[in-house]
């Protein structure tokens, strides 16, 4: 069965000086699936996302998004190809309203520049109206539409995470990379997040999620990849991985520290 591949990660290695944050990591993501990446602290999960989104350049290896190589592309080019991320440490834009934060997410699909916006050309005004409408749309999706005019960084923590999600969603991604979206959420909020992610999947958005909350991982993911010291040590269905002795050792080994 020749599987269709949305994202192919092939032999990616990232060295920081002497430290190998990623060692020959390879796996693929198929359209429509939810894949989870788990692993102890410092395993290289965030580094992998940084490499995938073009923030870091891998020391070696290739990444193919929809069959096209992304290594060497700028982050904004990769975003425009349909892959976008959220951040483990929330990075909302300071001083901008909830709505404006979401509007920035529309950047990759719009194009008015200095001249068009400066002179308020009709095309840019139309585009501006469209951005506004779509941003309100994604805010509604995550339940933040009533807070649209508040400053984003003033929201409670859980809602800031939702706003990061909405901002990423505004780019209409094909694949969404979520870096610990449930970190700091209470049980109720985690439940809502889980429902939200399922809804995204129904809409056809593929999701690659880094998460420590095993409940959530078990709940939503089709497959789990386990990273430890930058290496893939296991992969497979959630229940299988959970009982893999190597995985247990990796986690216990860390906990014993």
């Amino acid at each position: 069965m020749a599987e269709e591949r949305l994202l192919e990660i092939d032999n990616v290695t990232k060295l920081f000086g002497g430290l190998a944050a990623l060692k020959e990591v390879s796996f693929t993501v198929s359209p429509g699936e939810i894949k989870a990446i788990i692993g102890p602290n410092g395993a290289g999960k965030t580094t992998l996302f940084d490499v995938l989104t073009g923030i870091l350049r891998p020391t070696s290896g290739t990444v193919l998004l929809k069959g096209q190589g992304t290594v060497g592309l700028r982050p904004d080019q990769i975003t425009a190809m349909g892959m976008i991320r959220t951040f483990q440490t929330i990075k909302l834009f300071e001083g901008m309203t909830v709505l404006e934060n979401a509007m920035v997410g529309c950047h990759s699909r719009t194009g008015s520049g200095f001249l068009a916006t400066g002179l308020r050309l009709p095309a840019s005004r139309r585009e501006e109206a469209r951005i506004h409408e779509e941003a309100m749309g994604v805010l509604k999706d995550v339940g933040l539409e009533r807070r649209a005019l508040e400053v984003g960084t003033n929201l409670p923590y859980g809602q800031q995470r939702m706003l990061e999600l909405a901002r990423a969603l505004a780019s209409r991604p094909e694949i969404l990379l979520l870096d610990e979206p449930a970190a700091g959420l209470n049980q109720y909020e985690t439940g809502e997040l889980s429902a939200l992610l399922s809804r995204f999947r129904e809409r056809g958005i593929t999701i690659l999620i880094v998460e420590h909350d095993m409940g959530l991982v078990m709940d939503i993911s089709d497959e789990v990849v386990v990273l430890d010291y930058g290496e893939v040590i296991a992969r497979g269905a959630p229940e299988v991985v959970q009982n893999d002795p190597k995985v247990i050792e990796a986690y216990l080994g860390i906990e014993a520290d």
């Binding site: 989104t53 073009g54 923030i55 700028r74 982050p75 904004d76 975003t79 425009a80 976008i84 991320r85 951040f87 990075k91 909302l92 834009f93 300071e94 001083g95 901008m96 404006e100 509007m103 920035v104 997410g105 950047h107 990759s108 699909r109 901002r167 990423a168 780019s171």
Partner: peptide, 18 residues
């Protein structure tokens, strides 16, 4: 918005497509 985003966090602005 792009300019303000880049001011606040260049990484985040990059990643959001700016």
């Amino acid at each position: 918005r792009g300019l303000r985003a880049l001011h606040s966090s260049e990484v985040a602005a990059d990643a959001m497509g700016v």
